[in-house]
Computed example of a mutant assay.
Amino acid sequence: MNLQHLPNLSALRAFEAAARLESFSQAASELFVTHGAVSHQIRGLETALQTPLFARLGKRVVLTEAGRRYATQIRAALHAIAAATEDLRGGRAQRLVVSVLPSFAARWLMPRIGRFIERHPDLDIEIRASSELVDFARSDVDVGLRHGRPMPTPGLHVETLIRDVYFPACSPSFKGGRRPATPAEMLSFGLLQSCGDEPWRLWFDAAGLHDAPEPVHGPRYLDSSHLLDAALRGQGIALVRSSLAADDLRAGRLLRLFDVDASSGALTRAVCPVALRETARVRAFFDWLTEEVRASDAAQPTPVGLSARASTERSSPSDDR
């Protein structure tokens, strides 16, 4: 490999931005140059490569197949250059930025993150709780913790942390401690509803209640953490996600009903740019996550109710909630 034949870095940056945004004008705005400068740099790059990277459709530009492959590789290379530069500068190497969904942050990450901080006092960790998907190319986020069905992630390193299941749970004091003896009897109790990815239909099918309708009355919660709070306060029975409910179950604040699991096929995954995976800060965080997940799996509480187990696969209505 002859490094003397590398394209101009400015042209590569212009190409990466135009490929990501599929717009020369937006790329020019992001790079603080003119539309003409971006167009000139990309035409020069195409001439040097002897390959068209974009198809011009009037005022629109669309990546060719060759351009799409090249963009993925160039984006990873630019991330690697940025990571190496930041590590050398020092300060950025000591800061770890993690993007996480609010529900997972509140119920799983924050009760545990103190152990990571104690182990790595040299790292300044910043937790950003948000439902928005991270654009790693345009932010300083190192790692994203996401929940949902797997999706294509070009240019990103992905590791599955948790395969969640869903089951009903309530406060031990709900209904004065009286619990339903069967799933069918549970239908007459107060069922809390979710606006997210915890539809009761998912669990009804797993429990053999194929004719049971989805609840239509009662409070509804968009955030999974708020749904759990309602169950903890004795407001009803909630269909909970195993990872979010684990600590409350172990502490006895929440009681699982029946040994019947349902799965939406959704996963909790750790995601980062490929170039960042082996940096010291990100490697330390991934290693710690793996340890914490194993510790959580080893301490699952025993459910009460039916002894028969069941599971079902169903498409989740949303990804990365």
Rank of each mutant, 00 (worst) to 15 (best):
Y221K: 03
S264Q: 05
Q235E: 04
R250G: 01
Q193T: 08
H226A: 12
R250F: 04
G208T: 02
P199A: 03
E198H: 15
P215K: 11
S263N: 11
D211Q: 14
V293A: 01
P301H: 01
G305L: 08
E292P: 00
V274I: 15
V240P: 01
Q193W: 06
D197N: 15
D261F: 12
H226V: 14
T279M: 11
L289A: 01
P199L: 04
Q235S: 03
H217R: 15
S225I: 07
D211I: 07
F189T: 05
L209E: 00
L306Q: 09
S188I: 07
S194W: 07
L227R: 12
A251M: 11
R283Y: 02
L244F: 09
S263A: 07
A246T: 12
Y221H: 06
A184S: 10
V274D: 05
W200R: 12
R201F: 05
L257S: 02
W203C: 00
A299I: 13
W203R: 08
Y221N: 01
E214Y: 08
D247P: 04
A238R: 11
D248C: 09
T279D: 02
A184T: 14
A262C: 00
L306A: 09
P301Y: 08
H226P: 01
A207R: 10
S264Y: 06
V304N: 12
M186H: 10
Q300G: 05
A299E: 15
R277K: 05
A245D: 03
G190L: 11
D287P: 11
G265S: 00
V304S: 14
A284M: 08
G196H: 12
R233S: 03
F286Y: 11
L191V: 10
V216E: 14
P273D: 04
V216S: 13
Q235G: 05
Y221P: 00
P303N: 00
T268A: 12
P213G: 01
F286R: 12
S307L: 13
P219G: 02
A295R: 15
Q300I: 13
P213N: 06
D297A: 15
D287H: 14
P183V: 06
G208A: 04
S225R: 10
V260G: 02
D211L: 09
A184V: 13
R241P: 01
A275N: 06
L276W: 12
L232R: 06
G265D: 00
S243M: 14
T290I: 10
P219R: 07
P303H: 05
D259S: 14
D205C: 10
F285K: 11
L306S: 08
F258K: 13
L254I: 09
R241N: 13
W200E: 10
